[in-house]
């Protein structure tokens, strides 16, 4: 129908979001910027988890664990070897990516349930090792991490996170729309059919899994140097649940879904902070309802509504 006006509206939305995002540090308080940074961290995490879960149909429970790997690898390098932090972040990212690749190679051929169980065990082993090797990691006591910038500035961190998130999300978007993305979905929809037309299913899945662990590692490393303190909690199952809930509520298998979901849940959880323990329950119930009744998430609901509008 009115494709032209539709496209211009899209552009308008895009530009206003970009402007608002860029100008945010000008009018938000330190606290506001802090929430924005954490939201961007979760955008990175849920978008990359979505790459595996939403586009190749595999549920990994080690995604938070890969963030922990990135965070700890980068921090430990920075602390013990005094290397420049940008370098250690690259190092942490690569470690997470490599481990992701190995893990994917080993268990993706076995198929869904086994991948989930192995990633779950892997995450737990990692958590226990980080907790117990406290002469290195300080365990649950938390590791103090040097910051990226010499003088602490929330605005600088925010712009860095924003740049990397935009870059990563655009990259993922391009990937999904490319021929490779088609193969991803082919693998998910009908494994046998995909294989019969010459798509190497395992390779495709390993690729997605590696990429997703890489981004998680990067997000974790950045987070560590921002928070200046990391503990095994970043790799915990509760954290994993949050990422899963963000993706599910926002919309599994869409680009904008996890972005929506991550920002919405992070801002919401700060707003209902005073209710303490209730926020996990609220998120849990909402995501149960969404998974049960609207598996496309909020993004799916919005899309359906837009069809009605135009």
């Amino acid at each position: 129908m009115a494709t032209k006006s539709k496209r211009s509206i899209k552009w308008l939305i895009g530009i206003s979001i970009a402007l608002a995002a860029l100008l945010l540090p000008k009018f938000a308080s330190d606290y506001g910027i802090h929430i924005a940074i954490i939201s961007l961290f979760y955008v990175l995490m849920s978008s990359s988890w979505n790459l595996v879960a939403g586009f190749t149909g595999q549920v990994s429970f080690a995604h938070a664990a890969f963030a922990a790997i990135g965070a700890y690898a980068s921090s430990l390098m920075a602390i013990h070897y005094n290397l420049p932090i940008p370098l250690t972040i690259v190092f942490g990212t690569c470690i997470a990516g490599t481990l992701g690749h190995v893990l994917g190679r080993l268990c993706l051929p076995l198929g869904g349930t086994y991948l989930s169980l192995v990633t779950l065990s892997f995450a737990e082993i990692l958590r226990i090792v980080i907790t117990n090797e406290d002469q290195w990691t300080r365990g649950t006591m938390g590791l103090q991490v040097p910051g990226i910038f010499r003088d602490y500035s929330k605005t600088k961190y925010y712009l860095l996170f924003l740049a990397i998130t935009v870059f990563a999300v655009l990259g993922l978007n391009l990937l999904i729309r490319s021929r490779m993305g088609l193969r991803f979905r082919a693998v998910m929809d009908d494994e046998i059919a995909a294989a019969s037309v010459g798509v190497h299913t395992t390779n495709i899945r390993v690729l997605a899994f590696t990429l997703s662990s890489l981004i998680a590692g990067l997000a974790g490393a950045l987070y560590g140097h921002y928070a200046m303190l990391i503990s095994p909690d970043i790799g915990s199952l509760a954290q994993m649940f949050l990422i899963l809930a963000m993706t599910m509520i926002g919309g599994l298998g869409s680009i904008e879904g996890p972005i929506f979901g991550a920002i919405l849940l992070e801002v919401l959880s700060e707003q209902i902070r005073s209710f303490g323990e209730y926020h996990l329950l609220v998120f849990g119930v909402i995501s149960l309802l969404i998974v049960r009744f609207a598996p496309q998430g909020l993004a799916g609901l919005l899309r359906r509504q837009r069809w009605k509008l135009f």
Partner: peptide, 9 residues
């Protein structure tokens, strides 16, 4: 996958 996600939540 679906049932695992549901029971996890």
């Amino acid at each position: 996958m679906q049932s695992m996600i549901i029971t996890f939540i």
